[in-house]
């Protein structure tokens, strides 16, 4: 079965979801991520969903679960790049993903990881978190 690849960037894990996932694929991602957080001792998980055209309640729940599990494993989860139409639809659907942090793009998301509670306050004017993205990329 297909798997969504998980990349390691410094002490963060990056998942870029680009395909319309069927439910089993989404569940496999949840499992893979939990194992990888422990195996790599990651401090944060970035889930880039800028490629997703919809997020329904199933996928919303998956994002919430990933955030809850990683919190137990001492890692922050940041959902990155949600499209406007997807955000409007999720709100209408009744999902607010209160457990996850969000960021406009991967750079800002990187800056959020490990910066404590307040969202969006770790961002500089330019080159946000550029040193973090220099980390070695491992499969």
């Amino acid at each position: 079965m297909d798997r969504i690849p998980i990349l390691k960037l410094g002490r963060a894990l990056l998942v870029t979801v680009q395909v319309d996932m069927h439910d089993r694929l989404a569940m496999a991602l949840e499992e893979d991520l939990s194992e990888k957080i422990v195996a790599t001792n990651a401090r944060g998980v970035l889930i880039d969903i800028s490629g997703l055209e919809i997020v329904d309640s199933f996928m919303g729940r998956m994002l919430d679960n990933i955030a809850a599990v990683s919190r137990l494993l001492d890692a922050d989860t940041v959902v990155v790049g949600m499209r406007p139409a997807v955000a409007i639809t999720l709100v209408e659907l009744g999902l607010s993903l209160t457990g996850v942090k969000t960021a406009l793009n991967v750079d800002r998301g990187m800056a959020l990881i490990g910066t404590g509670f307040g969202a969006h306050d770790g961002a500089d004017d330019d080159g946000v978190g550029s040193e973090d993205t220099d980390g070695r990329v491992e499969g």
């Binding site: 955000a87 709100v91 607010s96 406009l104 793009n105 969202a119």
Partner: peptide, 9 residues
Amino acid sequence: AAARLMGAD
């Protein structure tokens, strides 16, 4: 709420 989901306050 939608803006927050996208990562803006």
